[in-house]
Design a protein around this nucleic acid. Structure first.
Lengths: 181, 181
DNA sequence: GTCTATACACCGATAGAC
DNA sequence: GTCTATCGGTGTATAGAC
């Protein structure tokens, strides 16, 4: 059964990310990944010659670029601290999209994914914490480093609750409270 | 190669839980599970005739009993609210043990595990939130329901950071701050 | 109650036609 | 650039010896 639909590189990445979010590294089989982009497994290998690990690496890179765009970029610069914080928290809501938002980095930390991508994920979270603390400090928040740590903690916890409850309300409520600081 | 070592039912459950925490439902293969208890795959089927799903169900039940014992039991009763909260938070530190604590319920929410155990996990978290809110209310905390929600949120977020950083410091620091309320 | 041996499906990956 | 067909390996699960 030849497949007709075509997805752009970006649309493909989005769909592949969704599979890894939902199933984790081990659970995301090539069959599931191929189905998600409506291609055969062999065609997937045309786009990703090195196979599953390369697909996951590209998914992670794509997700990392979105984190940079939506969450980190608003934090940089030397504008008003509170404005930067507010814009970044709005970006968090965009970055974690969908009716049941899931953190790809969290899903990829299970099993073999941890060995392959653990250090990269650790670095991304570290960068997030650093920039968030800098903006919080510029915003005049006391103990900015601790505040940033707790903010990320609460966002990640809200995402866990989103997965438990199957809805995005916990994340939106969490972001609203964080914005009120 | 016949295996000699024997583990008690409890020791077996603990080791099986560890595998599901580390690899998730899909990633926890029967080979890994059998290795963890030093039995052959066929011997595992003697203890769990219905196979992997039954092993995961037992692991989840065992973990649920520990949650009840360490975290929920201290919250019940009608003693001093703050004492109950403090004892339960101590229990959280015991429940999430090891050098890199991981929440089994979180790991089992990926992939097929969500279909099999999602409702059960949702119920367990709901019970935790309910009892925590009741104790917080008895302790005279304003907006006890919101406080309980945020406490669970922060604990789960700290556990995510523990997995990212590969250590238990984020959880211990989180629990210390929560106890200071 | 443990094991070896095996069955059959699916896994990740490749060859080669079109 | 897509596909069908296939490979060797591993997955879950079972049969039957001891």
């Amino acid at each position: 059964m030849p497949r007709i639909a075509r997805y752009s590189k970006t649309a493909m990445a989005e769909r592949l990310v969704t599979v890894f979010k939902t199933y984790g590294y081990e659970g995301a089989s090539l069959s599931l990944l191929a189905d998600a982009v409506e291609l055969s497994k062999a065609s997937l290998y045309h786009h990703y010659p090195k196979g599953k690990e390369q697909i996951a690496a590209h998914a992670l890179a794509y997700s990392g670029a979105r984190l940079q765009r939506y969450v980190l970029a608003p934090l940089t610069g030397d504008g008003d601290g509170r404005t930067r914080l507010r814009q970044s928290l709005d970006g968090v809501a965009s970055y974690y999209d969908g009716d049941m938002p899931v953190c790809l980095m969290n899903s990829l930390l299970l099993g073999e994914g941890r060995l392959l991508f653990g250090e990269q994920i650790k670095g991304a979270v570290s960068a997030w914490r650093r920039e968030l603390a800098r903006a919080a400090n510029d915003a005049g928040i006391a103990q900015a480093t601790q505040w940033a740590e707790q903010a990320i903690e609460r966002i990640q916890g809200a995402l866990v609750l989103c997965r438990v409850e199957g809805r995005r309300a916990p994340l939106d409520q969490c972001l609203e409270k964080l914005t009120q600081v």
